[in-house]
Design a protein around this nucleic acid. Structure first.
Lengths: 274, 274
DNA sequence: CGGCGAACGTCAATGGGGTTGGCATAAGGT
DNA sequence: ACCTTATGCCAACCCCATTGACGTTCGCCG
């Protein structure tokens, strides 16, 4: 058995599969993404993936140490897509908004994959870039370091957390999702006003809203609060951010746009058991 | 084979297990929670749960349609615990804060279980109560219905989303979590200032903060924004909320405290594939 | 141009998982 | 005390991830 997986960059001999395909990390990840889309978040299995690639299942262990490592690679791919082509405009609020929405929608473009990876620490290459960018936006905007770090963490985690939550809904099989929506409509829309006055009074609004992600709202609220905090910083004029709710500001170029740095990860937080 | 699972309330004949135990939904869920704590989030298996209960694995199918239904029951239990004993004080901001923190920490008290359930739609009994409570707090505070619904959704989803994210960290095996923290420290603390100036400048703050949940910060920011929106409502004096960051306000009793209502769930949101 | 070592794909096997159909039995109502 | 049937148990099915040994073929090196 292979004790060590050969890193992609060191691969020389590419031997075609019995069915003629030539494997690579990229091809495997891509195929895995397709399989997740087609078979749902539980549909990624080594056997099936092997079949789809026209290779023996065990072959995959030449490329990844196990299915977990493959999962992380998939997550890394999603993060990479989120940042691809992004450039700051110079208006911190608009930039943060766009960054958040990009991360969110990159995950939601592959909900089944996002379910598996969004709340996982990838420990891979694209995260440092995003972190540096966010911190840069905040510090350049004038936030003191302590605030910048606090807000940065809330921003990043909020984006990932909502991505995971929203992906879970999207990843449900169509039938199950429709059934869930029906339950919602049937239950909430009919709660008697005596027992649940507030739900009853707003049922129409609830039914209408509940099919949309709350992330844009939550993000905007976070930016509101940040902007207010910035205005309160001594020696600073209020209203420094680009206030353009729901739309991204035009690009102005310049600013901080770091590329992917060395490996790093968002480690586990809080103390607790295993 | 049993086509239908007998609901807990209809059970009459309780036949002891070969090893003497008497099963029930409650006992099974409780045992499952213990097993998750002891064996990690992947450690809940029908076979193992059967052994722990002193029963044949297949017996569990007399109580739950499958492991998925059991999972949802576990989630429901966590939600129930979050609300147990909660009462509003009358100060909307303090009440929302406490509610959010309660939900968050109820999940985090069982991280391995939370990982499995926090981003799942439980479709069970305790959610309506929480929803009514949150909507009630907001509408009573004076938010117009449209705002109340928007903020309610952001609040609830943010709480669940962070619970899932934070639980994922806590649920890691001790060794993996420590390793992750070390990676973080080793990588971020040593990034050269030339390539990553902002991370380098705030490394000490980052390392210090990253082991804590960002949820309290994000929650406070959401409440900030809500309070500002409330102040802007025509015909309303500013500063209506109890401003007591980080502490819960003293109880005053009264207010809206609905009990668990009929079944209902947070359905899948957004349109997308399955 | 020929050989050799290692890289790579394949095979077969292991241990574990969820789930099911059939069956024995004891619990409860009568 | 009897009968019904809910309930627990058994054995079996099929799928999964992972591993170790094996044979083939690639690509380097002389």
């Amino acid at each position: 058995m292979a004790k060590q997986v050969v890193p992609e960059s060191d691969r020389r001999r590419r031997r075609p599969t019995k069915q003629g395909g030539v494997l690579s990390h990229a091809l495997i990840v891509e195929t895995a993404l397709r399989m997740l889309r087609e078979h749902g978040s539980g549909g990624l299995t080594v056997r099936r993936l092997g079949t789809a690639l026209g290779a023996d299942p065990s072959t995959l262990y030449r490329y990844f140490r196990g299915i977990d490592e493959l999962t992380l690679a998939i997550g890394d791919e999603l993060v990479g897509r989120a940042l691809r082509g992004w450039e700051p405009s110079g208006a911190w609020r608009a930039d943060l908004r766009e960054l958040g929405l990009r991360i969110h929608s990159a995950y939601l473009a592959h909900p089944q994959a996002a379910v598996l990876t969004a709340s996982r620490v990838t420990g891979r290459s694209h995260e440092v870039a995003a972190d540096e960018a966010v911190l840069g936006l905040l510090r350049t905007a004038g936030f003191p370091d302590a605030s910048a770090v606090r807000i940065y963490q809330a921003f990043i985690d909020q984006s990932l957390a909502f991505a995971a939550l929203d992906a879970a809904s999207l990843a449900l099989p169509d039938a199950a999702r429709r059934a869930d929506e029906e339950v919602w409509r049937a239950t909430y829309a009919r709660l008697p006003a005596e027992s649940h006055p507030h739900i009853a009074a707003t049922a129409h609004l609830l039914v209408e809203r509940m099919n949309r992600s709350a992330y844009p709202t939550a993000l905007e609220m976070l930016l509101d609060s940040a902007e207010a905090q910035l205005a309160a910083v001594p020696g600073r004029a209020p209203g420094a951010g680009g206030r353009t709710p729901g739309r991204s500001a035009p690009r102005r170029g310049g600013g901080t746009a770091p590329q992917a740095g060395p490996r790093g990860g968002r480690p586990g937080r809080l103390g607790g058991d295993g």
